[in-house]
Every structure is written in C-alpha cells, then in structure tokens.
Amino acid sequence: MIVAERKPLAEILEMVKDCKKILVLACRGCVTVCSAGGEREAEILGSLIRLGMKKNGRTAEVFEGSLVRQCDREYVDAIDQWKGQYDAIVSTACGVGVNFIANLRPADNVFPALNTTFLAVRPSRASRANSVPAAVTVFSI
C-alpha cells in the first residue's frame, strides 16, 4: 500500500515552466485509492497547471492520460499512444512509478507531482487472516 500527497503547486509549475506540451499521467493503482494521483486528481492538476501557466504569462498545451499502473512494465508501453504529443510527463504516480517511467523512457522529461508519504507491505496471507498488526512491515518516509 502506498499513500501520497500532491506537491505544492508552485513546485510543479517551476518544474514545467519551459514545457510547451505536457502530459499529466495518472496512475490507477494505489494513488487512486488514496485520492492523490488518480484520473480525477490528474484532471484537477492539469487544470491547475493550465491556470498557473496562464497566470504566469506562459502558454502550454496540457492534457491528461492514465495508466493501469506505472510500476508495472506491462502497462508502461501504453504511453506510446501519446508519442510525439508531449515534451514532458508530469506523473501523479508514487515515487516507484515516476522512477520506473523515467528509467524506461530515458529520452523523456519525467517530473514527479506527488510526495510519497507512506508505504507498507503485508508479508504473508496468514497475517491478513489473523489480522496481526505486528506482522505488517511499515516503512515511514
């Protein structure tokens, strides 16, 4: 499980200030569940980037897309459907997703829109059945 929250808007606007075509890429995995980086949040962020750029006297074409997950190689190829339409990707995935996209697309500018604030794993099925909190490994970031 991952929990994340959006970075301050000023920080995101600073990252993309020189970009002309921006793809805000949502992740339909964990960050959708914690309402930080799903399709709905990407649509809001896209709108805020357009408004922010306009207020700062800049213009950019901003559009939104989404992947099933950004941390799974089998879903990342779907980015090719937007090939040539963007000069930067603003990813609303967690830190894992952003880095994975950046690794697989070294020629693209990939910017993180979220701060990953929490992650945890459940080591075994048994721990779920017995609801033993001690068996859950928690990483606080």
């Binding site: 709905r40 649509e43 809001i44 709108s47 805020l48 408004l51």
Partner: peptide, 11 residues
C-alpha cells in the same frame, strides 16, 4: 459537481 468542473469555469 467536480473540482475540475469549477476550475474549468475559471479556465
């Protein structure tokens, strides 16, 4: 109403 709908009005 979505947040995006209200922001779109400003856009």
């Amino acid at each position: 109403l979505e947040v995006a709908t209200l922001l779109k009005a400003f856009e």
